[in-house]
Amino acid sequence: MGATIGFNQPVESAAAPAAADGDVEMSSNVEKLSAEVDNIISSTHQALSSTRKKRKPAPGYTNAEHVKSFIQQTTVPSLHATKPAGITALDVSMDGNLAVTGGADKTVHVYDFTSGKTLATLKGHTKPVKQVALIEQDGAGRLAVSCSADKTVKVWSEGADGGKWSLQHNLTGHKGEVSGFTVHPSKRLVAAASTDQTWSLYDLANGETVKTYDPLEGQEGSFAYTSFAGHPDGILHAGGTDDGNVRIWDIRDASALAASLQSHSNPVTSLSFSENGYYLASSSNADPTVKIFDLRKLTVLTSWQLPAENKINEVRFDTSAQFLTVVGTDARVYANKTWDELVKFDDNAGDLTGARFVDLGRKLVLSGMDRTLRVLAAPQ
C-alpha cells in the first residue's frame, strides 16, 4: 500500500509541504490549477478544516436512541417508468422536502414531498442514471447533477422562484461510462470519474473542464473507476476501481497519488468519507462486506460481513458524523465509532439503492428498485 498522506497527520493537513518523521512528502504539481480554481479549493479547505475538530451535530440533531425507534412512516410509490423499472439514485434536500431521483428509465425526477407531486421529469440521458445530487445554493436557484452509463454528467437548473427545471450543462469528454461524481463543498466544482481510467474536474458555472486526472505510469493495478467520493474539506478525492483498489488523490496534484488502498477483491462500487474526515467506508455489490479505513493510519479500522445473500449498493456517512447507512437487499444503520447496528429495515419489495438522513436526522429517506421512496422516522 503506497501512500503520500502523512501516517501521523490528520487528513485535512495531509498535504503539508514539509515531511515530518515517518511521513512522505507530497510530489509537486505538474499541471497547476488556475489561480482562481486553486483559490476556491484552498480557501474552502482552510475554512472547513479549521473548524472540523470542534464541530458538533447541529442543535436538535437526532441521536442513536431516537434512530433505534425508526419505523416506516410513509411511502411514495410508482416513481419512474415500469420498463425498465427502478430508482437507481437518490438525493434529498436537508429539510427533507425535495427529492431528486435517477432511474433505470434514463430520467431524473424532482419530487416535492410537501405537495406530493413530481415537479419535473428531466430527460436527456440515453442510458440508466448512476448517481444524482441536489445542490442548494445560498441566494441562488437549486441545481441537480446526474451521471449515467451514457458517459455524460448533466447539470440541471431550477427556474427563478421555483420555476421549470432545464438542462444547464452537458459535461462530456469521457470515453467510458461515468461511474460516480462528487460535488465540491464550495458548490462551484464537480469531479466525476469514469471506467476509462480518468477523472475530471468541472466548473459548474460554465460547464468547462478544469482538469483531467490520468492514470499514473508505473502504478500497479487498475484505474478504471467504479465509484467516486470527495472528502468533506474538498482536497482529497477517492476513486474505487474495478480490481478492488481505492485511489486517493490530492485535487491540486495530478502527478502522484495521495494514497492507494487495497479494499476488496471485487470492484469497489460505493465509497463515503465521514464528516469528521478521518474515515472512509467502502463496499462492493459483489461482496457483502463493509470496510472502514482510518485515513490517519491508512489501515482498515474495522470491517464486518452481512449475510451471504445480501447485496450492498451504497454505504454513506450522515452529515452529523454519527451514523453510517448500508443499503441493498435491506437497509441498516450503524453507529459511528462503535459500529453497533441500530436499525434494520427489510420491508421493501426490491433492492434499496440510496439512503439520506434529513430534517436534522429525524427522518431517513430510502429509494429502491421497486420504484418507491420510503420515509423512516420515530413513531409519532
Rank of each mutant, 00 (worst) to 15 (best):
A331M: 08
A16F: 11
L119N: 07
V326P: 10
Y202L: 03
S270P: 03
N97A: 15
A229V: 04
E220Q: 15
L79N: 04
F7T: 13
L171T: 09
A89H: 06
I248Q: 08
S49F: 08
G86V: 00
G328L: 01
F181H: 05
W199F: 15
R247N: 14
T325R: 07
T4G: 14
L373Q: 02
Q72L: 07
E341G: 09
W249I: 09
K154V: 04
S255H: 10
R356M: 07
G234D: 08
E12L: 11
A192P: 06
S146Y: 05
D359H: 13
E25T: 13
H237F: 14
I71T: 15
T226G: 00
F70I: 07
A238H: 11
T74Y: 06
V153C: 08
A335H: 01
N39K: 15
D370V: 02
A191I: 12
T172A: 12
C147F: 04
L364E: 08
K123T: 14
E65A: 15
Q73K: 15
S43P: 08
L189S: 09
P379A: 13
P59H: 10
R316P: 00
P77E: 02
V92R: 09
R371D: 01
S50E: 12
G354A: 03
T172D: 11
S50M: 09
G141T: 13
T241S: 13
E12H: 14
S200E: 01
F323H: 09
A85I: 02
G173Y: 05
S27R: 14
V246Y: 06
